[in-house]
Amino acid sequence: MNDPAVVRTLEERLFNAWPALQTVYCDGWLLRMAGGHTKRSNAASPFYPSTISGEELIRTVRTLYRKAGIEPMVRITPLAGEGIDAALASAGWTIYDETDVMVAPLADRVKMSGAPDAAVVLSEEPSQAWIDGAAGAYELADWQRDMLARIVGAIRVETAFATVYVDKQPVGFGLAVADRGYVGLYDLAVAPAARGSGAGQRMIGALLHWGRSHGAHTAYLQVRKTNVKAHALYQRLGFTVAYDYHCRRMARAG
């Protein structure tokens, strides 16, 4: 766990799979911005070894993100230099969204499990129906739906947009991104009424099968540490934790 080479390999693919609409480079840090939708594309993330101090990083992030109208946020991965997290903590930046990055080998043929009556439809491009359905499943505001459309429309590596149907009704949405031997699973969501039915597991299986057919030897995904049910599902599917990260954001007034 926390092997820098593995972390950098996965982080690079995470950036490609969920692009920012603007990136400012700052001494080994990527200050990514996409209108404030999702922390993945709206946080400063370490990538290369850096000599910047925690205090200077704080000043830079605060200035540039405020200029962009985005909440200043920093992702602390194992690639962050020594003292950065402590400096943010000392400045009152609070921990937000502790997350595990999990991986699973795809050496063997993917077994399709889950609800046998669930049908999964994959598309290489995000249709308006997929965007609207996914936005509804994620309970996004109108501006977030528009930003979701811009972000997924900017992905340049191979993609599969999944919709899972039960009784011809869409009950779940997800996205897989294949990039040089890895397939990442993103934004998996199932309607409350269909949760626990196996529809989500069916969708995951279809996306993993697609990834393997596109040359992936390893799958990866991100899951919040607090999402115990998802953790249990992914562990049953063979995923283990490769590394973890958390975000820090400025303490909110009041």
Results as ranks from 00 to 15, higher is better:
Ala162Gln: 02
Val164Ile: 11
Ala194Tyr: 04
Ser197Leu: 07
Ala176Leu: 10
Arg180His: 10
Leu175Glu: 05
Arg145Phe: 02
Tyr186Glu: 11
Val190Trp: 04
Ile155Val: 15
Leu188Arg: 00
Arg202Tyr: 04
Phe161Lys: 07
Trp143Gln: 11
Ala141Asp: 13
Ala137Asn: 14
Asp146Arg: 13
Gly196Met: 09
Leu175Phe: 03
Ala149Gln: 08
Ala162Val: 08
Gln169Met: 09
Gly153Gln: 13
Trp143His: 10
Arg145Ser: 11
Asp179Val: 06
Tyr182Asn: 11
Gly184Cys: 04
Gly200Met: 12
Ala193Trp: 05
Ala189Trp: 00
Thr163Asn: 04
Ala160Ser: 12
Ile155Gln: 02
Leu188Trp: 00
Asp142Pro: 11
Ala193Gln: 13
Ala178Val: 11
Gly198Thr: 07
Gly153Phe: 07
Pro192Gln: 10
Val183Pro: 01
Gly181Trp: 02
Thr163Leu: 04
Gly181Glu: 06
Ile151His: 00
Arg202Ser: 13
Phe173Ser: 10
Asp167Trp: 01
Asp146Leu: 10
Ala191Gln: 12
Gly174Ile: 08
Asp179Thr: 10
Arg150Trp: 00
Thr159Ala: 12
Arg180Met: 09
Arg202Ala: 15
Asp142Asn: 06
Ile155Leu: 05
Gln201Arg: 15
Ala189His: 05
Ala194Asp: 08
Arg180Cys: 07
Ala194Pro: 01
Tyr182Gly: 01
Val152Trp: 05
Phe161Glu: 02
Ala149Arg: 13
Lys168Asp: 14
Ala160Asp: 07
Val157Gln: 10
Thr159Cys: 15
Val177Ser: 14
Arg145Leu: 01
Val166Ala: 12
Leu188Asn: 06
Ile155Ala: 04
Ala162Thr: 06
Tyr138Leu: 15
Ala193Asn: 07
Gln201Ser: 14
Ala154Ser: 15
Arg202Cys: 02
Val177Arg: 09
Ala191Val: 12
Leu175Met: 14
Ala194Ser: 15
Leu188Ala: 12
Ala178Pro: 05
Gln201Gly: 13
Ala194Val: 05
Tyr182Thr: 11
Ile151Tyr: 02
Ala189Leu: 02
Trp143Thr: 08
Gly184Ile: 04
Gln201Trp: 00
Arg145Lys: 15
Ala176Trp: 02
Asp187Ile: 07
Trp143Phe: 08
Arg195Asn: 10
Arg145His: 00
Pro192Met: 08
Gly184Leu: 03
Arg156Trp: 01
Ile155Glu: 04
Thr163Val: 14
Gly200Glu: 09
Met203Glu: 08
Gly196Glu: 11
Gln144Glu: 15
Val152Tyr: 05
Arg145Val: 01
Gln201Pro: 00
Ile155Pro: 02
Val166Glu: 11
Leu148His: 00
Arg195Val: 08
Ala191Ser: 12
Asp187Asn: 15
Phe173Ile: 03
Val171Asp: 01
Tyr186Ile: 03
Leu148Ser: 00
Ala178Arg: 09
